[in-house]
Structure formats: structure tokens, C-alpha cells
């Protein structure tokens, strides 16, 4: 396949970027999207040009590092797929592909397609944990039975990879899906119960501080989330938040 790529180039955080056009040829449909990017970078390096910086690590859809906005969609056109899992067979010979970084005030660009998502870490630091000592002097694991249904739902919420596609795709750059996934996971488990009020209040406060937008329930995040994190989690977080706001002292 031969392709035309329009890629966002930005030398650094405080520099103004712009779209540049590149051509790649002989791309196999079995290549992954990032392998196609490798081919481009190989070509750029050999031509003495600056390769395109982009984030990636596991290349199997689990680390959450890859983050490209491809043809107007976070992680590209396929559902339930991270950028690294996208394969070139989803495109046609002669296509023009637009590639941009996640765009949000809370995700400043580091270089080209690479953005800084440490705001997500700070939200988790605000309360996305159970305050248990790492001593191992806990009770036996089976002393805390958890109804399978809740365990499964908590697991589904916990599969969030923290990629930020939800923010990238949201017209408001809202981080609600990400935050609600963690709040839900811990709200669904007895282990998370003692801190549930404080947790949701703190995490939401931090989320707002980071400069994410507000959720208006467009539902785009759920559609684009590579892990299928459900909007039910956002509703659950709204519930938790209302409850905590009303009951907190």
C-alpha cells in the first residue's frame, strides 16, 4: 500500500506546531499502525530528518502508552482497539491519514505526538487506592467474599489502561470516564467501602484542578474507549459524588 500521512509536528511544549505531509510506500496490510510509523521514521532518519516522536511501549494494547488521534478518532477507526492494535488492513491503498496527538489542556504536548498525561497520575494519587498497609498482615483473602457480579463489574472498570482516549475524544476534554472507572472499581468492592466518600470527593476535586472539561454525557468516551469502559461507571461516580457531597461534614 502507498499512503499519504498528515502528521502533527511540534518541536516542544511551548512551540507552535503544524501539520506536515509525508509519503510512505510498500506498506503491508498485516503491519500494525505503529510498524507503519516505524517505517516512516526509518525513512526520515535515513534522509537526515527528524523522526516523529510518539509514545508506545507494550504494543499489545495493555500499557496505555500509545495515543494517536487518527483520521479524527482517538486510536483510529476501529472499536475496542488501541493505536498499537490497529492494523493497516483497516486502510486502503492511496488513503490519506491524519495523525494528531491527544489534544487537551490537561495533556500538554511534549513533542510531536507525545503528550504529558501525568495529570492522570495525580488524580489517582488524590485517592485512587485503598489505604491498606503493605505489611501482609491482612486477613485471609477468602475472608472477604465478594459477590461474583460485583467482582466482575469491578474488574471491568479496573481494566482501564489510562490511555486518555476518553479525554482526547470528548468534545469537552472531560476525564470523567477515566476517573469514574477507578471510583467504580473501589466502590463496588467491600475493601473500598470505608473511604468511598473521601475518595470520590478528592479525586473529582483533583480532576477539576487539572483543567479537564465537564462531562455533558455525549457518550463519545465510551464509544472510543479501547477497553469498553461503560458509561454506567460515570453514573455510579455521579451517585457516589452526590451521596458524598450530601453526607460529608
Amino acid at each position: 500500500m502507498n499512503l499519504t500521512l498528515k502528521i502533527w509536528r511540534q518541536a516542544g511544549p511551548s512551540v507552535i506546531g503544524k501539520m506536515e505531509t509525508y509519503k510512505v510506500s510498500d506498506i503491508s496490510p498485516d503491519m500494525s499502525f505503529l510498524e507503519m510509523m516505524d517505517v516512516l521514521n526509518d525513512q526520515l532518519i535515513r534522509d537526515g530528518k527528524d523522526p516523529v516522536a510518539f509514545d508506545h511501549d507494550c504494543r499489545e494494547g495493555i500499557c496505555g502508552m500509545c495515543s494517536m488521534y487518527i483520521n479524527g478518532q482517538a486510536h483510529g477507526p476501529n472499536r475496542g482497539t488501541t493505536t498499537c492494535q490497529l492494523h493497516m488492513r483497516s486502510f486502503k491503498d492511496g488513503d490519506t491519514i491524519y495523525i494528531e496527538p491527544w489534544r487537551a489542556a490537561a495533556f500538554p504536548v511534549i513533542k510531536d505526538l507525545s503528550v504529558d498525561r501525568s495529570s492522570f497520575d495525580r488524580i489517582i494519587q488524590a485517592g485512587g487506592y485503598v489505604s491498606v498497609n503493605t505489611s501482609g498482615n491482612t486477613q485471609d483473602a477468602n475472608a472477604i467474599p465478594v459477590p461474583k457480579e460485583n467482582a466482575d463489574k469491578a474488574f471491568d472498570a479496573a481494566t482501564c489502561i489510562g490511555c486518555g482516549a476518553c479525554v482526547a475524544t470528548c468534545t469537552n476534554s472531560s476525564a470523567m470516564l477515566f476517573v469514574s472507572a477507578k471510583v467504580s472499581q473501589l466502590a463496588l468492592l467491600p475493601q473500598g467501602d470505608p473511604e468511598r466518600e473521601l475518595r470520590v470527593l478528592r479525586m473529582v476535586e483533583q480532576m477539576d484542578k487539572e483543567g479537564f472539561g465537564n462531562c455533558s454525557n455525549t457518550g463519545a468516551c465510551e464509544v472510543e474507549c479501547p477497553k469498553g469502559i461503560s458509561l454506567e461507571n460515570i453514573a455510579r461516580m455521579n451517585r457516589e459524588y452526590l451521596r458524598a457531597s450530601v453526607t460529608s461534614e
Binding site: N71, E100, R103, A105, S173, S174, G213, S216
Partner: peptide, 13 residues
């Protein structure tokens, strides 16, 4: 919400 995305996408769908 507008402030939360200072630079818009060049191509959005």
C-alpha cells in the same frame, strides 16, 4: 469546556 482544549484538532470526526 472550551478552555479545556486550547488547540483544536485539525481533522476531527
Amino acid at each position: 469546556n472550551r478552555k479545556a482544549r486550547p488547540v483544536k484538532y485539525a481533522y476531527n470526526k
